[in-house]
Amino acid sequence: MGRTVQITFDAADPAAVAEFWAAALHYEVQAPPPGFATWEEALTAFGVPPELHNSRSAVVDPDDVGPRLFIQQVPEAKAGKNRVHLDLRVAPELRGDERMAALEAECERLAALGATRLYRVEPDGGMEHGFITMADPEGNEFCLD
Rank of each mutant, 00 (worst) to 15 (best):
34 P>T: 04
65 V>M: 11
57 S>V: 00
71 I>R: 06
46 F>P: 00
44 T>D: 12
80 G>Q: 14
60 V>N: 06
63 D>C: 05
80 G>W: 12
41 E>T: 02
32 P>H: 03
78 K>S: 08
44 T>R: 08
57 S>K: 05
83 R>T: 14
90 V>S: 03
68 R>N: 09
37 A>C: 00
51 E>D: 15
65 V>P: 00
79 A>Q: 15
78 K>V: 10
51 E>G: 02
58 A>D: 06
80 G>A: 15
75 P>T: 06
45 A>K: 11
45 A>N: 10
33 P>D: 05
88 L>A: 02
70 F>M: 15
54 N>W: 04
50 P>G: 12
79 A>T: 14
33 P>I: 01
42 A>E: 10
78 K>N: 10
78 K>I: 12
81 K>P: 10
65 V>L: 14
50 P>C: 11
49 P>Y: 12
33 P>G: 02
69 L>W: 06
86 L>C: 07
63 D>I: 02
85 H>A: 07
58 A>T: 08
54 N>S: 09
75 P>F: 03
80 G>E: 14
34 P>K: 06
35 G>P: 04
42 A>W: 10
78 K>Y: 09
43 L>I: 01
87 D>E: 09
72 Q>C: 05
90 V>T: 14
59 V>D: 09
66 G>S: 13
30 Q>G: 03
32 P>F: 04
84 V>L: 15
53 H>T: 05
72 Q>I: 09
59 V>Y: 07
75 P>D: 13
64 D>K: 14
30 Q>R: 06
36 F>Y: 15
58 A>P: 08
54 N>H: 11
79 A>D: 15
68 R>F: 01
28 E>W: 01
83 R>Y: 00
70 F>L: 15
71 I>K: 07
80 G>R: 15
28 E>G: 01
65 V>E: 15
38 T>I: 02
54 N>F: 04
35 G>W: 04
83 R>E: 15
30 Q>T: 04
46 F>A: 13
77 A>S: 13
75 P>M: 05
56 R>S: 15
87 D>I: 03
51 E>N: 15
77 A>W: 00
52 L>F: 13
59 V>F: 08
63 D>W: 04
39 W>K: 03
61 D>H: 10
47 G>S: 06
68 R>V: 14
72 Q>L: 09
51 E>R: 12
30 Q>P: 00
49 P>S: 08
32 P>M: 02
80 G>K: 14
83 R>W: 00
67 P>R: 08
49 P>N: 09
36 F>S: 03
84 V>D: 04
72 Q>R: 10
72 Q>V: 12
73 Q>L: 01
66 G>V: 07
71 I>C: 10
46 F>N: 04
51 E>S: 11
75 P>G: 08
45 A>C: 05
52 L>I: 00
62 P>V: 11
43 L>A: 08
66 G>Q: 12
43 L>Q: 11
56 R>L: 12
32 P>C: 05
50 P>Q: 13
31 A>L: 07
87 D>Y: 07
74 V>C: 14
40 E>M: 01
31 A>S: 07
77 A>P: 07
71 I>F: 09
42 A>T: 00
44 T>C: 01
43 L>E: 07
74 V>S: 07
86 L>A: 09
84 V>F: 13
52 L>S: 09
86 L>G: 06
33 P>A: 06
68 R>S: 04
44 T>F: 01
29 V>D: 03
39 W>S: 03
